[in-house]
């Protein structure tokens, strides 16, 4: 009699648990898909070059607060403009790799465009192809502060200990007392270039890897997003526990059912 009373209650509990398991499963599905996809991609960061690819969507860059600096220093050399934006140096709107601010000046001389940054002079063709990077091993005077040209169009650099002049191939340097020097002067870039540079600078501010990591951890929504992913993780634990428990009950019931059927068959025989 007792057995008959307990069985429906247990069945009701099982049914209720099964329904909850299903609802939790449905609620977790979105998180599982999101975490699995982002996890898969992050596992292959190198293969997909996620750390060197950048997000270009304006709303995401706004969400992350990626802004271009207001102050930009531009030097014009021939038909090109070299600009310092933040720590990056741009040839028109193309970032120059492995070079960082401060930009000391840019001059065009003897068919070459020379860009001066701290510790280096970069030689470019007028159409923007890098010819060579020069540092102190190539005889570039130490502590360059500014770049300029003399009346003959030769390259000169200003240092704390004097001015130095290069030959036309920028191979040899000698100290000079030449006073007629036009030092390169920085200006603000034209409005159209400024807008393009702002877009270009913002476009390098957020890597795909960062975005995926933040989606994976929930940080894309701030601290609340982290709690949301925490809640999802708890749901997963609940789902796994209820699933295991239901599977166990189902397994036990099936075993009992088989045992009872075997006993009934024996009695009939």
């Amino acid at each position: 009699m007792t057995r008959h009373k307990r069985k429906p209650a247990r069945a009701k509990l099982l049914r209720s648990l099964f329904l909850w398991h299903r609802h939790i499963g449905l609620a977790s599905a979105l998180f599982v898909i999101l975490l699995a996809l982002t996890g898969l991609l992050l596992n292959h960061t190198d293969d997909f070059s996620l750390d060197s690819r950048h997000v270009q969507y304006g709303f995401l860059l706004d969400w992350y607060g990626v802004k271009a600096p207001e102050t930009m220093l531009a030097y014009t050399a021939g038909s090109s403009t070299v600009t310092e934006v933040g720590t990056q140096i741009y040839w028109n709107t193309t970032p120059i790799p492995q070079v960082s601010a401060p930009l000391l000046g840019t001059v065009e001389t003897h068919g070459l465009v020379i860009i001066g940054v701290e510790g280096q002079l970069l030689l470019f063709t007028p159409d923007g192809k890098l010819i060579e990077r020069l540092d102190n091993s190539a005889g570039v005077p130490a502590g360059v502060q500014a770049l300029g040209r003399n009346a003959a169009g030769d390259l000169l650099v200003k240092t704390a200990h004097g001015n130095y002049q290069a030959d036309s191939g920028i191979l040899k340097w000698h100290e000079t007392a030449d006073n007629e020097i036009n030092w390169a002067v920085a200006a603000s870039p034209p409005p159209a270039l400024r807008a393009a540079l702002q877009q270009a600078y913002r476009g390098t501010g957020l890597t795909l890897e960062r975005l995926l990591l933040d989606i994976h951890s929930g940080r894309i929504l701030g601290s609340r997003g982290v709690y949301l992913v925490d809640a999802a993780a708890l749901l997963f634990l609940l789902l796994a526990s209820s699933g295991l428990w239901l599977w166990g009950r189902h397994h036990a019931n099936a075993r009992e059912h088989r045992r009872m059927r075997a006993a009934a068959t024996t009695r009939l025989k």
Binding site: P97, T125, K129, L130, I131, E132, R133, L134, S137, A138
Partner: peptide
Amino acid sequence: ITEILGHNPDALRVR
């Protein structure tokens, strides 16, 4: 040079 480096040389001359 491209074959050796696995990419195009990044400069037009070498000192």
